[in-house]
Design a protein around this nucleic acid. Sequence first.
DNA 1: GCACTCCTGACCTAAGCAGTCAGGAAAGTC
DNA 2: GACTTTCCTGACTGCTTAGGTCAGGAGTGC
Lengths: 159, 159
Amino acid sequence: MRVSAKADYAVRAAAELAAADEGPVKGERLAEAQEIPLQFLEHILLELKHHGIVRARRGAKGGYWLARPADEVTIADVVRAVEGPIADVQSTPPEAIEYRGNSEHLREVWVAVRASLRSVLEEVTLANLVSGELPAVVEELTSQPDAWHASTSTKEMTS
Amino acid sequence: MRVSAKADYAVRAAAELAAADEGPVKGERLAEAQEIPLQFLEHILLELKHHGIVRARRGAKGGYWLARPADEVTIADVVRAVEGPIADVQSTPPEAIEYRGNSEHLREVWVAVRASLRSVLEEVTLANLVSGELPAVVEELTSQPDAWHASTSTKEMTS
DNA sequence: GCACTCCTGACCTAAGCAGTCAGGAAAGTC
DNA sequence: GACTTTCCTGACTGCTTAGGTCAGGAGTGC
């Protein structure tokens, strides 16, 4: 249930590419702009390339650019490219699990979890991200003050 | 962005406890009912105890039971007990991260991601889970057929 | 031919995941 | 008081992932 450094880096690099309106951007510049270790970033960009998110050219005047327009690439695309399926349970998709006994309905819950993640990640495009004009879903979720607190319920006790 | 076996086991064991209406249930029975390795489960139950989710007594007629009524324990409570904070980015809460350059608005996106997870996990109680009467949020999310497919968008190409 | 940049595989350390093993400590029973 | 039952705890293990670094190879442009 956590976002890896890799996914975070990938999205930030992609955002930087989305903002660069002309010509290839070289890895070094992306690394500097977002303060990401260069060599690590290169591996990430390679993965993004293999998944058809970015393209690249070598040599002088080389660099990376988005394979598709920035408003057609969602954050979900980028995250999936580097992390694989979103919201797997025990490394298998939630709809493929059979639960017995009193946890029969747990599958629906995990499916709902995945759906709710998608409702955010698949709605926000890189264009949204750089312009700051985030979709209504996001605005609604972030407008509740609770959303900005580390933990909401404090019913638990430290037995 | 994945659910660990530990979290899955923890919720299932908690569901089993929620369904047992009278007296302590011993670990062995929980392990059998949900097909969880007993020794592993005992560690999990211990963590749940330390977080005040369950209580326990040793000896004959001993076992585990919920510390609070089943309709006051949410899945979020259980998951947090064994996995820690729910949607940390790079092991820090999203609201604590400073983004520069073109990814300035990424923080809002991660906060929205966390909020959307909470909107599911904090709404579903163990009582909901065992009865199958899931909250409206969940019903809405799972009623869309897309929610049951492994992947929705197929815009990407394998470069 | 040379500089530049991406491309790739190998490697590394630390941590986490998913457990198992062995023994100790309370609670109840006889 | 001995004995059984059950939880409690720490140590350990094997494997994978996270988060990188290093060294070199392969296209590209001049």
